[in-house]
Design a protein around this nucleic acid. Structure first.
Lengths: 116, 116
DNA sequence: CCCATCCGTAAACATTTGGTTACAGGTGTA
DNA sequence: TACACCTGTAACCAAATGTTTACGGATGGG
């Protein structure tokens, strides 16, 4: 589906989420198939709490999604999988995205004064 | 150009460099044409020292390059411009890049210690 | 009951990051 | 001379980030 281009703020969040070796490895592992938290932690070799935090960031950025499911033996397991994100980073593309930045920079432009 | 795919570590550095509103705006501005530090600082509305720090990070990541030039009136001016980077981010692509990660993870020894 | 698995979160800590203010150097012009 | 512009860096601070250890609640099986 190659979702529509994200806003500047969303893009920054996505990039920040991927700009970490551990999170990159998480996404890479999930790219090979969905997995649940505890198993994924063992697979990658990190603690559950730490993994949990990183998963939250990745999910907040829209790069992965988690679904709580019940295994046959009744245990609740949270499965994560990658979304179909597809970002193309070039200088012009970034320039386009930067137009919709709002975060830093106290005030630049009239802000949400739609149209005129 | 579309330079060869960067290593995992390089990719993380690039993403980290872009994962900041100010730096994104810097790249976006430079995408519109080369510029020198002081003018760029005025243009974007940040202090020179701060801009200098961000420019260093962007240059270290290979996203921009700076060249020291002498203006006609003899003043030394450092011009920055974007490089022709072109990153394509998808789950499979990241999985490929993650193979060459070395940073975190105490030691993911070089020896293939298989086992799931 | 105790132990195993699964889930999550809060407290505490060290490090990194983003940012300011202040300094030091160079050149050219009034 | 003093002042404008250009460059760079060091000192210091506040806030965000990465990480560990420890705790909490559920489930099923010996």
């Amino acid at each position: 589906m190659t979702a529509a281009e994200p806003t500047g703020d969303e893009l920054v969040e996505m990039l920040a989420a991927l700009a970490n070796p551990l999170r990159l490895r998480i996404v890479a592992t999930l790219a090979g198939g969905r997995d649940y938290v505890s198993h994924l932690a063992r697979e990658i070799g990190v603690s559950r709490p730490l993994l949990h935090m990183h998963l939250r960031r990745l999910e907040a950025a829209g790069l992965i999604t988690g679904t709580l499911e019940l295994s046959e033996d009744g245990k609740a397991m949270k499965y994560y999988e990658v979304t179909g994100f597809d970002l193309h980073l070039t200088a012009p593309a970034l320039a386009e995205a930067a137009k919709t930045l709002t975060r830093p920079d106290p005030d630049r432009g009239p802000g949400p004064k739609e149209h005129s």
